[in-house]
Nucleic acid binder design. Structure first.
Lengths: 322, 322
DNA sequence: CTGTTAGCGCCTTCAC
DNA sequence: GTGAAGGCGCTAACAG
C-alpha cells in the first residue's frame, strides 16, 4: 500500500519512506501494471483508435500524424487499423477496439452504413467521424470543405477557358465522392456549362483505375480539354497519362501532394491541412473522454459537434523555372 | 463459469446451454473485458507497438502499413508513436508501451543509445529494431541494404562521367547515415576519385535543411556536377534547388518517391519495399510472441535474427515523354 | 457437463 | 503516516 502511494506520488507519506520506496523500485526495474490498475478503477485504457481504409494514402497518414500529436500530448496511445475499404473488416476492427476497452475512436467510414458505430454497439466508447458526416447516428465529426474546394478548382479551369471538362471521381455513394462531384456540378452550372456525362468517371480510389479512366477520357472522339480529379490517387493517375499525352490538357484536383512543385506539368490542387483533420478529431474525442479536461462533455450527450477544415487552391508550379 | 466457457468456445459444454448463453450475450450486447482476462492469465495484450521518429516521412508510413498488415492478420492491434527524433521521448514512449503490457514492439531508434531497449527494461516484451542494428543489446533486426544501395547509386553517377559529386547526408552518428556515406565513399574510392570534404553535408533529415545545404553546394567556387542524397527528405530538398538552377546537375538518391515518375528532372533513386521492412519486423516479433506459432522462439533466447531488405536502382523518368 | 474456490495486481476504504 | 480488508472481471484448478 505504501509502495502504491509512493509511486502515485500521493501525499500523506513520510519523505524518507517515499525515497526508500522509489530507490528500491528503480533498482528492481519495477513497472506498475496498467491492466490491473484500470481493472480496479473500471477506467478505459488511455488509448484512442483510428480506423481508416489505408495508411498508404498520404491523407490518412497525415490524419494519423495529427491524431498522434494530440494523443501523445495528453498521455494517450494511438491504435491504428486499416480496413481496405471493406465494411465487414470495418465492423470487426471497430468491435475489436471496443472490446479492448479503448477510450474512444476516430473512424473514416468506408460506407454509408454507420450502424456499427452507434454508442450502444461500442460499450459506450465515444466515436468521432472524419471526412464523412454521420448517417443515422449522433456523433461528433470533422469534415473537409469538399464542396467549396472542388467548386474553386473547377472555377479555376473554367477561368482558363475550358468548357469540356472531364471528371475523375470517387464512388457516388461516398460522402466525399458526392460532395466533390456536387462542387464540380455547381461550378459548371454557375458558368452556364453542360456536364458531358460520358466524361464523368467514378471509381474506387486507386491510381491504376484513375489512370485507365483518364486514358479513356482522352481517347474519346471529342476529348476533354481539362481534367478535374477528386482526390490524390486520381490526380496521380491522371498525371501519369497526361505526361505521355500529345496535346496539353489542363488539370485541377483535390488533395495536395507533397512534391507537386517538382512535377513536370502545370496544374492546381485543392490543399488543406490533413494533419489538422486528425488533430481536431482527436481533440473532439478527448473532450468526451478526458475526465480532467475543463471543457469535457459527456460521452454521448445530445448534440454532435462539427468542425470543418477549410481548403485553398494552390497553383503549381509555384515558381517559374529556367 | 459456464458463460465464460461458452464465450471462449471451449468444448465440454452442452450444446443447448451454449446456445442459450450466446443468445443472451448477444441480446445484452455483453463484451468480455479483455483487461480482466489478461490480468488473470498474465498474458500480454494482443498488441504490438511501433516507435518511429515521424509518421510524416513516407518511409515510416509504409513501415506502419506493412506492420499493420501482419499484425491484423494475426489478430494483433498496432500501437503507433512518434518520437520526433528525441531520445528522451523515445525512452518515455517505449517505457509507456511496456507498462501497457504490449506483446512486443518494433523500434526505429533515433540514436545509438539502445540501453532502454534491453529486455530487462521492458518487463520482458521482445523488441525488434528496424533500419538500425542493435548496439550493446541482443535483439532481432531488419535492415535495408544501405551500403549496397548507395554504392550503386554513386556508381551510376560516376558512370555518367561525374567526378565532383556532392553528398547530402544524415548525421554521421546514425547507422543509416554512416552506412550510406560508406557506400558513397567506397564507390568513389573504387573509381579512383577523391571526395571533396567541403561538398559533404550531413544534417538531420529535414527538407528545409537539405534545401539550404544543396544551395550552398551549388554556390561554391567550384560547384559539384552531381548530387547524391541520403534519403527522401534530402532528395526532395535537393530537387527544389535543382529545378531553379541554371546548369543541369545530375542527382541520385536513397529512398523511392511515390510520384517520382512525374518529376521534371531526370535522376536515379535507390528503391526498396518499405512495407516489407515492416512486414518482416512484425513477423520476427510475432515469432517471439505468438504461443500459437509453430516456429516460435523464446522471447529472448540467445542469438538475434537478422533480415536484410534488398534495394534496386530506378532511373527516372522511366518512360520517354513528348 | 456444470459449479465453486481462489487469485491475477492494483486501489478505495477504513482501521490503527 | 502506515497497513489490512476486500473487490474490479475473469479464468485455472479442482469438486461435484
Amino acid at each position: 500500500m505504501t509502495v502504491s502511494r509512493a509511486i502515485r506520488g500521493e501525499r500523506g507519506i513520510a519523505e524518507p519512506t517515499r525515497a526508500r520506496v522509489l530507490a528500491e523500485v528503480a533498482a528492481l526495474g519495477y513497472r506498475r501494471n496498467d491492466l490491473a490498475r484500470r481493472l480496479r478503477s473500471g477506467q478505459a485504457h488511455e488509448l484512442i483508435g483510428l480506423v481508416v481504409t489505408s495508411l498508404a494514402n498520404p491523407f490518412y497518414a497525415q490524419l494519423a500524424v495529427g491524431m498522434e500529436e494530440v494523443a501523445t500530448e495528453q498521455g494517450f496511445g494511438l491504435l491504428i487499423a486499416a480496413t481496405g475499404a471493406d465494411l465487414g473488416r470495418e465492423r470487426d476492427l471497430v468491435a475489436d477496439m471496443a472490446a479492448r476497452r479503448i477510450a474512444g475512436l476516430v473512424v473514416v467510414p468506408c460506407s454509408n452504413d454507420h450502424d456499427h458505430l452507434r454508442a450502444e454497439a461500442l460499450s459506450g466508447s465515444p466515436v468521432v467521424l472524419a471526412a464523412t458526416p454521420p448517417r443515422g447516428i449522433e456523433v461528433d465529426y470533422v469534415l473537409v470543405d469538399d464542396f467549396g474546394g472542388m467548386y474553386a478548382a473547377c472555377r479555376e479551369l473554367i477561368a482558363q477557358g475550358h468548357q469540356h471538362i472531364g471528371f475523375l471521381g470517387l464512388p457516388a455513394a461516398s460522402w466525399t465522392g458526392s460532395e466533390r462531384y456536387r462542387g464540380f456540378a455547381a461550378a459548371m452550372e454557375d458558368a452556364g456549362l453542360e456536364i458531358d456525362e460520358s466524361s464523368v468517371h467514378r471509381h474506387r480510389s486507386e491510381v491504376d483505375q484513375a489512370e485507365a479512366a483518364a486514358r479513356r477520357l482522352l481517347a474519346q472522339p471529342e476529348p476533354v480539354t481539362a481534367l478535374l480529379t477528386a482526390n490524390n490517387r486520381n490526380t496521380i493517375g491522371a498525371l501519369r497519362v497526361l505526361q505521355q499525352h500529345r496535346a496539353p490538357i489542363a488539370l485541377a484536383g483535390f488533395d495536395d501532394i507533397e512534391s507537386a512543385d517538382l512535377f513536370r506539368l502545370p496544374f492546381s490542387l485543392v490543399a488543406y491541412d490533413a494533419a489538422q483533420v486528425g488533430r481536431e478529431a482527436a481533440r473532439l474525442l478527448l473532450t468526451r473522454v478526458g475526465p480532467t479536461s475543463p471543457e469535457s462533455v459527456a460521452p454521448h450527450s445530445g448534440g454532435s459537434q462539427r468542425v470543418i477544415i477549410p481548403t485553398h487552391l494552390v497553383t503549381y508550379p509555384t515558381l517559374v523555372t529556367r
